[in-house]
Design a protein around this nucleic acid. Structure first.
Lengths: 330, 330
DNA sequence: TTGTACGCGTTATCAC
DNA sequence: GTGATAACGCGTACAA
């Protein structure tokens, strides 16, 4: 059933029905009621494709994020997609995942949607390099970074107060009396990594302690495990280890468990993110909670605003404060 | 740029360009080359909406799954969506999440897509009741159940060998010498729960042991925790507990950890699913691995087949065998 | 092998 | 306040 058929059935023109369905003004109450009744009765819905064609607008939002290969990698990260997908859906936009690969960059695949077919983009996570972000900018569509930012270019983004939180975490390790405090980070071009290093460095400098930073090629559970050996941990070790995310911290703790080394006294550990698993390690992990749901919500709402008010070209950097969660690894 | 504009630019009719883009036969090599070159040069892509309109086909697959409210609930389940979303995307179909709520049923919300706008549906997980599944059937579109099935109606579905696996798990507890072996399950109308109870019952009957089944209102981490108190566990307890999923088993183990009760000797625990976290508990969890990726892949491929060959109306129940993973809680 | 003409279902514009 | 009509961009039947 289409507009024309319905129109013939109830003897009201297609344009009028269209007006009712689009909440346009200037319809008599009588006809409006008549139309609404018929729509209800016939379970009538407008054709999605025809509508998009004539309105020349896209209802697709591309969600660009790094393609993770192992299940382990997938599972140990926040699922911020839940929050913003819901909001976008409520506003009649569909989320389409677009993969970014470390080696071949952003890949639109053989999908029937080209960059031009999107209303806008959300670029998720810290691991998308500046070069790729700028390439998205070239599409000329609204986009926003989530959990990422750029230093040299003004860009719409939503981040947390990385440096402050990492400063606080490091202070916890310092106040506990550790003299050797190591910060384990990931690739040095990631925005969050840089910010968190700043926080760590500030705290260490204030305490006049020697900084020790280890860069891992990736920030997943398995690399966290590796740092255990890298740092030569044994029963005698006295050390504070601050990981750039929970996934690595959990890997480290698990490796300690497997080696019967106790965490929380001579060896302190802090993570970052407060993923759900963080409270379930033995012992539970001290970390910084990122309000990822709020951040995702903010990002999607801001993107929707950018799409509907394309003349408004100011860039906004939103900082959503996280908070320190003290558990038992410190 | 649209077909007509490109057509004028390279002096080849729009229909010919359309033919080239749709891999239709009967084009001279010369014009084909000319067209392909122009497409490449101009970064030309077909308009998605216009294409769907004229072909009168939908590129949307509805993914119906239970709406979970807490982050905890979200995280402790398999992410089978990853696997099938990728396959569907490769075939130019888009996944649109559709929420099912325990109280108000399947909710299409105010989305611009009505049931008719979908090419088909994947119904995920065991917690969607038969009534809702049958209501989807009424849409007259192809659909397939993932990790669920129906007893009274033939239905396309992909499940694992629930009963066999639970039988094996129970045998492990029996062989370990436990005399009291409790099975903790969820709502009794869930297909998987019923199947797993069958497996448990078979093993218990064979061993002439008394069955003890506890039904919880939901099968999440927190309800798993609750069973610890429910079963009056202390240092003296000798018991085997078989949980209907890992989430609950992990909750139980965590509660045991918190109470300094050791798991793996007098108290044995088995889960079901082998979610990533199962290997990371203290001690690591013995469970049955479900090959959820294979299952998701199978479901999506079968659905695509049903969509393209709508005349083929036979129903297929695919059983993907899982396997027992023995770790340290038994 | 290629081009022309029409229709898909909707919205916007213009008339009445 | 309502209706007729012309687009939107593509695929396909038919003509050449």
């Amino acid at each position: 059933m289409n507009l024309k058929e319905l129109s013939e059935k109830i003897e009201v023109s297609a344009s009028t029905i269209s007006r009712v369905l689009n909440d346009k003004p200037g319809i008599s109450e009588a006809t409006r009621a008549k139309v609404l009744e018929a729509i209800e009765k016939e379970h009538f819905t407008l054709n999605f494709a025809a509508r998009n064609l004539v309105k020349a607008e896209s209802r697709f939002i591309g969600i660009i994020s790094r393609k993770r290969t192992s299940v382990e990698d997938v599972i140990f990260f926040h699922h911020s997609i839940n929050q913003f997908q819901e909001i976008l859906l409520q506003n009649n936009y569909f989320c389409v995942p677009i993969a970014y690969y470390d080696d071949k960059g952003i890949d639109f695949g053989n999908a029937p949607l080209s960059p031009n077919d999107y209303a806008g983009f959300i670029i998720r996570g810290q691991s998308i390099p500046q070069k790729e972000i700028l390439s998205v900018k070239k599409f000329g569509k609204p986009f926003i970074l989530l959990e990422n930012s750029l230093y040299e270019t003004k860009v719409n983004c939503v981040v947390c107060n990385d440096a402050e939180l990492e400063y606080e975490l490091t202070k916890i390790l310092i106040n506990k009396g550790h003299k050797r405090i190591v910060h384990v980070t990931g690739p040095d071009y990631w925005y969050n990594n840089k910010e968190r290093i700043k926080g760590y460095s500030n705290a260490m400098n204030e305490a006049a302690l020697e900084k020790e930073i280890i860069c891992m090629e990736d920030t997943v559970l398995s690399t966290g495990r590796k740092t255990f050996e890298l740092l030569n941990i044994d029963e005698e070790t006295n050390i504070g280890v601050s990981f750039v995310n929970d996934a690595m911290a959990i890997g480290f703790i698990k490796e300690a468990n497997d080696n019967n080394i106790k965490i929380g006294e001579n060896i302190s550990v802090v993570g970052f993110d407060d993923i759900p698993w963080a409270s379930l390690t033995t012992p539970p992990l001290t970390t910084a909670r990122i309000e990822i749901d709020d951040m995702g919500k903010l990002a999607s709402m801001r993107l929707l605003d950018m799409i509907s008010n394309s003349n408004n070209t100011k860039t906004v950097k939103s900082i959503v404060d996280g908070k320190i969660i003290i558990r038992n690894t410190t």
